[in-house]
Amino acid sequence: MSTCTRCGAQFGCAMVDGSPEPCWCTALPPAVPVPQEAAGCWCPACLRAHIAAALANTQAAS
């Protein structure tokens, strides 16, 4: 189990758990950088929210 460095939630990370399967996060768009101050893994909810907000900001700026 991993702990989200953003919200503290517990979640499964295939890399940490030693799974031979790819982690759930590899299915998400890789084009959104995670801020340096948030180093570490984020839970699915936090990472999805971050991606959605970044994409909305990009679209609003266009």
Rank of each mutant, 00 (worst) to 15 (best):
H50S: 13
A14D: 12
A49C: 03
W24Q: 13
S19P: 00
L47K: 15
T26V: 11
A27D: 15
A49W: 02
E21D: 15
P33S: 05
L47Q: 15
W24T: 11
A39L: 05
A9L: 00
I51F: 10
A14G: 13
C25L: 11
V32D: 10
N57S: 15
A60D: 12
W42C: 04
N57H: 13
C13Y: 02
A9G: 00
C7S: 04
A49V: 01
A31F: 05
P20N: 05
P22V: 06
V32Y: 08
P35C: 03
T58K: 07
T26A: 13
A45D: 15
C13R: 08
W24E: 14
D17T: 00
S19W: 08
P30Y: 00
A60V: 02
H50L: 14
V32C: 09
S2Y: 04
T3Q: 06
L47F: 07
C46D: 15
G18K: 02
E21N: 11
A14R: 07
W24I: 10
A49T: 03
G8H: 02
I51K: 12
H50V: 05
A60Q: 12
A52I: 01
T3R: 07
V16I: 14
P44E: 13
Q59C: 05
A60P: 04
C25V: 06
N57R: 15
F11I: 00
G40T: 04
C25N: 10
A52D: 15
W24C: 12
R48T: 09
A38V: 06
E21W: 07
T5Y: 01
C23W: 03
N57A: 15
A38E: 15
P22A: 11
C4Y: 05
